[in-house]
């Protein structure tokens, strides 16, 4: 769906300083059809610049972007047919009514005149804005405006949605609705390219992910692959029903176990070995007399992975 070839964007540093900033440094990767692709990185990592180059809003200093095989720089109008874009900070035309706003963009995307009215109503329904159809946009809440913004992005039924921080500034309820909406749009077969600071949200909806910093990609791949990457050991947590058994010391003496740390009524440890050896270990813990009431694998969160990758803990 999206292909980036050596995509580079260079800016000047603020005046008085030597050198230049590479907001995107020879980015080369591909996002296949049907993915929800999350781009993660700190402020200034180059995420928005990359997104804008994908949409044809920023001209790359070098390299190229193709969407569905169409060069975004060379054939911008044709490429736009395949792209729906939502910026991080945006306004709508407050003096237009909801249906007029969508109607304007439907015409601007040169949709078939006969289908526009039906499509506008369909999108209004999909965005749960039926009751606001004939209201001025100025009267909508922040969450409704965000939904309308997404409605605008999908009005021409593009196969690719490019969303920059779509959850920014939304309350928890609106965020939940947004996630449900994105999942629904994905289920309809759309590819979604999304950036967000709320990593837990991305972890919940993304199928692939890339971690970006200072214009460069640190990690990229399927979500579970990226999460697994760099991990030679797994971490487990044993919950105890009562104190009195020195489980951390007992575990430290076992082969394959490391970093055993005692917590309140629990012990956390790292384990290197397969599931059969793990099962044997668990049996031994119980037969040794430890009052085990719970045993769980401590899974890596995207947030933790991101902080480990960006701090250089995992290379």
């Amino acid at each position: 769906m999206i292909r980036l070839d050596n995509l580079t964007k260079q800016y000047d540093l603020p005046s008085g300083k030597a050198g230049a900033i590479l907001a995107a440094d020879r980015l080369t990767f591909e996002v296949p059809d049907g993915e929800i692709f999350g781009l993660v990185g700190p402020n200034g990592a180059g995420k928005t610049t990359t997104l804008k180059m994908i949409c044809g809003l920023h001209a790359p200093t070098a390299g190229r972007v193709t969407v569905n095989g169409i060069d975004v720089q060379r054939e911008p109008e044709e490429a736009q047919r395949h792209i729906g874009y939502l910026a991080d900070f945006f306004s709508l035309y407050d003096d237009l009514k909801v249906w007029e706003y969508l109607d304007y963009f439907a015409h601007a995307y040169k949709m078939d005149e006969g289908t526009i009215r039906g499509r506008v109503d369909e999108v209004i329904g999909l965005m749960n804005l039926e009751s606001k159809r004939d209201q001025l946009i100025s009267g909508l809440s922040r969450g409704m405006k965000q939904r309308l913004g997404i409605g605008r992005a999908i009005i021409h039924d593009p196969p690719l949605l490019v969303l920059d921080e779509p959850a920014a500034g939304l309350d928890p309820k609106a965020r939940v609705e947004l996630k449900a909406l994105l999942k629904e749009l994905h289920a309809q077969g759309r590819t979604i390219f999304i950036t967000s600071h709320i990593l837990a949200d991305l972890e919940e909806i993304c199928t692939s992910i890339a971690i970006m910093e200072k214009g460069r990609l640190l990690r990229i791949g399927k979500l579970e692959e990226v999460m697994r990457e760099g991990k030679s050991v797994r971490r487990f947590r044993v919950r105890l029903a009562a104190a009195g058994f020195a489980l951390a010391e007992w575990l430290a003496a076992r082969s394959g176990v490391s970093e055993a740390v005692e917590e309140t009524m629990a012990v956390r440890f790292a384990f290197a070995g397969d599931d059969l050896i793990l099962a044997e270990l668990l049996r031994e813990i119980v037969t040794a007399g430890a009052p085990v009431c719970g045993f769980e694998e401590v899974t890596e969160t995207l947030e933790r992975l991101y902080s480990r990758v960006s701090s250089g803990e995992v290379m």
Binding site: Q10, D25, T28, F29, V31
Partner: peptide, 17 residues
């Protein structure tokens, strides 16, 4: 001669994609 034009490539990362 700007140094920023000669940074390490990211092709090996791209191969993961």
């Amino acid at each position: 001669d700007a140094p920023s034009t000669a940074v390490a490539p990211t092709e090996e990362i791209a191969q993961h994609a």
